[in-house]
């Protein structure tokens, strides 16, 4: 042994790497999106198993940290969009149009949250749209304008300089329990002008 502290130095290096890798990777993963079990359709993703006892350990850890209560399988399914159809993250500086229709559900609601997961205050006191109040085209399709500037028709205001996310909650829906998640018809998210 050439150096008397060689062993201690090696041990310290080893333990430092262990802590850095172990805690660092856990923190990194838990701060991101749930890694497993996503069902993706267009810009929208859902995690059908997230509320069940067989959810993966990462999902369980994330839910314990955030304190959110998942929807039960018999209640419905939540789709989340954080980017538009082109894959660009949703920004509070841009306007968007949600166009099309939703999968079959007895009721749905569309809500906008800021990057921290909070509702955004606005002058018209609207944080969501639900399927009963939405103005539709003659063929049943709908257009929802999303953005900072007021627009005629269905306008869902967004008041943040940063990014935001959209939650489409489908209540009492066959989606998720059934098999045909691949050919889901989800509304498109088209980006308009940005400031």
């Amino acid at each position: 042994m050439r150096h008397p502290f060689r062993f201690l130095v090696d041990l310290t290096v080893g333990l430092a790497i262990a802590c850095l890798v172990g805690f660092g990777s856990a923190a990194l993963v838990l701060d991101r999106d749930r890694p497993f079990g996503a069902v993706t359709a267009g810009a929208w993703s859902a995690w059908p198993a997230s509320g069940s006892p067989d959810a993966d350990p990462y999902t369980k850890a994330m839910q314990a940290r955030s304190g959110e209560v998942p929807l039960g399988a018999g209640e419905g399914l939540i789709f989340i969009a954080e980017a538009d159809d082109a894959g660009t993250p949703l920004s509070g500086r841009c306007s968007y149009r949600i166009v099309g229709q939703t999968p079959a559900a007895r009721l749905w609601t569309l809500t906008a949250y800021d990057a921290e997961g909070h509702l955004m205050d606005n002058a018209v006191r609207r944080t969501s749209f639900h399927s009963r109040e939405i103005l539709r085209e003659a063929d049943g399709r709908f257009v929802i304008a999303i953005g900072p500037e007021a627009e005629p028709g269905n306008w869902l205001p967004v008041a943040t300089g940063g990014s935001f996310r959209l939650l489409l909650r489908l209540y009492d829906t066959p989606v998720g329990s059934g098999s045909d998640v691949r050919d889901l018809v989800m509304p498109r998210i088209e980006r308009g002008e940005c400031r």
Binding site: V13, G14, L15, A16, I17, A18, C19, L20, V21, G22, F23, S25, A26, V29, L30, P57, Y58, K60, A61, Q63, A64, R65, S66, G67, E68, V69
Partner: peptide, 24 residues
């Protein structure tokens, strides 16, 4: 250290629900 780090990662993820104080 890398291997031990992997073990720490798994243990941390599994134990988070038991130590969360903001859970539902």
């Amino acid at each position: 250290g890398l291997l031990l780090g992997g073990i720490i990662h798994v243990v941390v993820v599994l134990l988070v629900p038991d130590f969360a104080n903001r859970d539902a």
